[in-house]
Structures are given as C-alpha cells and as structure tokens.
Design a protein around this nucleic acid. Structure first.
Lengths: 145, 145
DNA sequence: TGGCGAGCTTAGAATCATTCTTAGCTTGAC
DNA sequence: GTCAAGCTAAGAATGATTCTAAGCTCGCCA
C-alpha cells in the first residue's frame, strides 16, 4: 500500500476518510481518535477549542477524556491534520483548514472566520534575520464585535 | 496646564518622562507605576511579559507585587501606553512600541523582534463583514529558531 | 486464534499564567 | 492635616493545559 508522506498530502486528499487520515499520519486509529477526527473533518472547515471539542464529543455519545482531546489535537497539529491559531492569550484554537489563509477574529464573541488566501495580499516581506527559516506568517484581522 | 487627550499622543511625545506619561494617561503617579513606567519606557522598545517585568522590578530593588504588575500592564494597555501582542497561547507579551508594526517571533526562544511598518506591505485586505469595525491587524512572522 | 509489548487512554493531581478578594495604605484635593 | 477615592498586596481562586501512573487496546506474530 502506498504511503503518502509529503507535508501537505491533505490538500491532495481533502475527502480522505477519518481512518485514512489517521493512517496517513502514522497514528493508530483508536476509537477516540477516529471519533474526534470525524467530528473535526466531516463538518467542513472548523475552528474549535479543546473544551468545545470535548463537550461536542460527549454530546455525540463519545466517551473521551479531556486529556485525550488535548493529546489528539496536538498530535493532529504535529502531523499537519490541523493548524493551531493563536489569537487570544489563554485559549488555543485549532483549525481544520491547514492551507495558507488568514482570519477574522471577533473579539467579543471569540469567533474565528477564515479569510480566503486570495482576499489578502502581502506584497512585501522582510527576510528572516540571520538566514533563519520562516515557519509561518499569521495574519489576524481583529473585529470589534 | 494643557491636557493631550488624543489616542496616540505618545507618537507626538516619544520622550515624555514616566511622570508625564502617567499624567497624560490620567493615572495617578504612584511609586510602583512610576517605577514600572521607567523600566518599560526608558530602555528603548521592549517586548516583555508580566513575570519578566516583575522580576526585573524586584532586581532593581522596586518592591511591587505581581498582581500590581498585571494591573499596571493592563492599565497601560488601555491607555495606549502599551500594546498587547498575542503570539503564544498561554503567555501575554506587552510592547512599548504602540505604533503600527509587525513582529518576528522566535518560537524556540520565545523572543519577539519588531518588523518596521514599512518592511511589510499588505496590498489587499477584505472588508470587514457586516460593516463591522476592524480594530487591528496583527501580522506575525514565525521563525523556527 | 491467543499472547504480548508498545502505544493509548484515563482520572485526577499538578502546574502555569492570570484574576479576584479583601483589607490596609497612599495620594491629592481642600 | 484630613479624608475619600484610588491603589496595592498577599494569598486564594480560576481556567486552561499538562503531567502522572495505572490500566486498557491494538495489531503483529506465532
């Protein structure tokens, strides 16, 4: 069986099943990882916190501990199934859209909304100091609502 | 005595003394606020956490509680003497440069470095949804070092 | 199919940054 | 100098996240 190991295989297989995603990421498809993957990836692009995913899982009848939700979110982030978005100190959001894009952040409600990559354009960028490597560019447009 | 009440008076008076800054912000110049203002503003542009400012103050022989450091940082942020920078969930940085600019964030060391406003250029921006108001645009360039 | 070890999950304790609470101290106005 | 409003402090409380240790599960192999 072929293994797809490139960093952004996901963009090539956006409709892979939860099971395939786990296999491709090299994670054992346990009951809780499968259930969380389904909640995350079978509902379109999502921005979610660990707490929220935890209660969503419980509401769906999936018994999973909060610690496992945290572990899983971090494993998914490391394997590029998810991206972590930092917009508020003290709360971590995880984004199921791992392609390059930016966000609106609604400060009062705490909601995130994607800005499509082509709606924002950075035409000039400084080079990284010391020839270090740029690992990402985050753009957040804060909305006072 | 004239009072300068515009939002960014600071950019007009970059060398105001700590005492003047507090007065202009409408904050009573107490011993601890003065000491913290001096540490913050008399050492060029800085990016600092509450913990770090607290220990810096203590090392300088200033007796101030951590709670007061937090209070003061927030009051300074509200009065636009400081700007809060969010780059890592779980830690808040405060920036003495309140003018529009972006940051390099060195993920391994946790250090921040200013990117001058003219070194980055956003040539296209989506309009805010629902005619809501954009309260800020944050650009962080993450460096893998 | 059964056994087994690595990897996973769990509950609860622990940690970390931050905020709250409450009582006592300062500051500036008069 | 007096006093009220505003400020500060210590420690308790909170909320998010991570750690710990003990017990399960998965899938490989005989």
């Amino acid at each position: 069986m072929d293994k797809i190991l490139t960093g952004n295989w996901k963009s090539m297989r956006p409709y892979a099943s939860a099971l395939d995603r786990l296999r491709n990421a090299g994670l054992r498809p346990t009951r809780q990882r499968l259930a969380l993957a389904k909640l995350l990836f079978e509902n379109g692009d999502r921005h979610i916190t660990a707490e929220d995913l935890h209660s969503e899982a419980r509401n769906a009848g999936v018994s999973v501990s909060l610690a496992t939700v945290y572990n899983t979110l971090h494993q998914f982030t490391q394997t590029e199934l998810l991206r972590e978005v930092v917009v508020e100190s003290g709360r971590a959001y995880f984004d199921t859209n791992t392609t390059q894009h930016s966000h609106f952040f609604f400060e009062k409600s705490g909601r995130l909304m994607d800005i499509p990559a082509d709606a924002i354009e950075i035409s000039q960028l400084p080079s990284a100091p010391d020839g270090a490597e740029i690992s990402g560019i985050d753009v957040t447009v804060r909305i006072d609502a």
